[in-house]
Design a protein around this nucleic acid. Structure first.
Length: 573
DNA sequence: GCCGTTTTCGGCCCGACTGTTTTCAGTCG
């Protein structure tokens, strides 16, 4: 089992935390954090890159030293420098530093003065009143530590984008009723439409006499007010999520929106360009000396550094700044570009609505086409279709297509990829369909090589068209099964198959990075909802969000093509 | 420890809020 990128990134992050506690050179600390970020977000495995002899020091924020350390980790699973640091500074201190309000300086003081080496030591010290006696600590800090240690055992995972929307939508409506409010935008990773959100950053412009701050901290769902000021407050909601509210002057809205939308890495890159032009960029505007020369809109900010507007979904410092410089930004796909849905279920298997109801809903959405892809028989728990039931469904589709003038229903199936890579229906049945979507629903724990081979063998079947939810992950619930995704994507390209970006907010699989790889190898993608009900069709927008984060344009997406072109693409014979 | 059209040395973002201070260090984003 190769070392995963996350494990390498975690080791570097832990090292950075411990070095920070030891008061090392802060820029060295940051270098480890930057490298961890690069590794964690890189689409290809470091282990694979090393195996193929790639030069890791070509990656951003990775130099010769770190390239060597990554190699050591991949080969031995160990980071000797971290082990050396552990002998001086206990590993648990890194975890203690994750408690909000405890940074490197305080953790160092706790360790040196009170000999705290573990979370239990910390808890004990707080409960026996030892912490309040330390220089720079007081009663409030001690109480804060008591509270947070208790909560810390609860997981602090990021929430899914749809969950964030469910929290943000009523809060936004509530804040909009404040006096004197002008603009309100939820910035941060929410605006960049990341698949998961750590916290919400709300940005507001308002008249001087606004009561938005008072209303904010008085919101019914508030569990804890973490900080409260005139221009910035932070609360924690009962759901566990933190929310920041910032109030800025109207003329600073663009600069503030840019600043608080991030990502941090993107902002640093833009600020650097500003510095090169002897300009200063902060959340209040863009300045030449003391003179403010822009910042009312984001477009102005970009224009002042000599760039076209960059869409929020691209702002991850993954090449968008260079692309903007060369005027080569992608023309990102939008919801309007979608002409149909290529993965939907009905009541015949595990869906909620009938074929006719789903078809009418697709028409209502203005789709030119859509397909029915119920499960095949192997999915017994979903009451998968037998050959006979599938043939009956196909006849029903023929009848409906006679009646429905606006939307063409395509005949399809979500056919199970069996253990040996064969498909769950014979070719003589598959060939009667307009196309097929193949999926892995069983044997998730095959080795990486076996799982990859299994899927490639399935794609050898000439009636295989689209690989559904290619890694099987469920965000925050189930990790992806082990596969060499790039090999599978290259295999799909060679065979004339396509890969699905599953738009369900629990799945969103392909990831944004995988979309970028797909685009690079010119493998086209189907953005499909996997709808099990009429409302499931609404998930398309989450798929669009993810596709945009993955730099995809309408031309890269097969269900943005007219029916005639789609049919041509789906015909491998 | 990384990086480079100020390039192998000398930079590396900075403003708001809190708590413990009596003028500011620590933390966070």
């Amino acid at each position: 089992m190769p070392v995963h990128n996350k494990e390498i990134a975690d080791l570097f992050d832990e090292l950075a935390d411990l070095l920070e506690i030891e008061d090392s050179n802060p820029f060295r600390v940051r270098a480890y954090r930057n490298a961890a970020h690069t590794i964690r977000n890189h689409a290809e495995n470091m282990a694979d890159l090393i195996e193929h002899g790639s030069d890791l020091s070509k990656l951003p924020d990775i130099g010769n030293d770190l390239a060597e350390k990554i190699k050591t980790i991949v080969e031995t699973g160990r980071l000797p420098l971290l082990e050396k640091v552990h002998s001086r500074t206990p590993a648990a201190l890194g975890r203690i530093m994750e408690i909000r309000g405890l940074g490197p300086k305080r953790v160092k003081a706790l360790h040196e003065k009170l000999k705290i080496k573990s979370m239990d030591d910390l808890k004990h010290a707080a409960h026996t009143g030892k912490i309040r006696k330390l220089d720079g600590f007081g009663k409030k800090t001690e109480q804060m530590i008591k509270n947070r240690v208790k909560e810390f055992t609860q997981s602090e995972e990021r929430i899914k984008l749809n969950e964030a929307e469910d929290i943000a939508t009523p809060l936004r409506a509530y804040l909009k009723e404040s006096k004197g409010i002008k603009n309100l935008t939820i910035a941060g990773s929410y605006r960049r439409r990341k698949e998961t959100i750590g916290d919400l950053d709300i940005l507001v412009t308002a008249r001087k006499n606004t009561d938005v701050m008072e209303r904010f901290v008085a919101y019914d769902e508030v569990k804890e007010i973490i900080s409260q000021g005139e221009t910035r407050s932070t609360i924690r909601l009962r759901s566990g999520i933190s929310v920041d509210l910032r109030v800025v002057p109207e003329e600073s809205y663009g600069a503030a929106l840019h600043y608080f939308t991030g990502s941090k890495a993107h902002n640093i890159a833009i600020r650097k360009m500003a510095l090169e032009k002897k300009l200063k960029l902060n959340e209040y505007g863009i300045f030449r000396g003391k003179k403010r020369i822009g910042g009312n809109t984001e477009k102005e900010v970009y224009a002042q550094v000599g760039l076209p507007y960059i869409e929020p979904e691209l702002r991850e410092n993954r090449g968008e700044v260079d692309a903007a410089k060369e005027n080569k930004l992608p023309d990102l796909v939008t919801l309007k570009d979608i002409r149909g849905d290529l993965h939907c279920h009905t009541k015949a298997t595990d869906g909620k609505h009938t074929l006719k109801e789903m078809a009418q809903a697709a028409t209502k959405r203005g789709y030119e086409y859509f397909s029915i892809n119920d499960h095949s028989e192997h999915m017994a728990m979903a009451h998968g279709l037998s050959e006979k039931r599938l043939l009956e469904q196909m006849e029903e589709i023929d009848r409906l297509n006679e009646i429905l003038a606006d939307t063409v229903i395509l005949k399809s199936i979500e056919v199970d990829i069996l253990r040996d890579g064969s498909l769950d229906l014979p070719d003589r049945v598959l060939k009667e369909l307009d196309f097929t979507v193949g999926a892995v629903h069983s044997k998730f724990n095959l080795s990486r090589t076996q799982q990859t081979e299994r899927i490639l063998r399935a794609m050898d079947n000439p009636y295989f068209n689209i690989l559904a939810h290619p890694t099987g992950r469920l965000i925050n619930a189930r990790t992806a099964y082990a596969i060499n995704l790039e090999k599978i994507m290259r295999g799909a390209k060679e065979r004339g198959c396509f890969i699905e970006l599953n738009a369900h907010p629990d799945r969103l699989d392909l990831t944004d990075d995988a979309c970028i790889v797909a685009k690079e190898i010119e493998l086209r993608v189907a953005i499909s909802t996997d709808a099990h009900s009429i409302s499931g069709l609404n998930s398309m927008r989450f798929g669009i969000n993810q596709a945009r984060r993955g730099w995809l344009e309408a031309v890269d997406v097969i269900n943005c093509q007219p029916l005639k072109e789609l049919k041509r693409l789906l015909n491998r014979r």
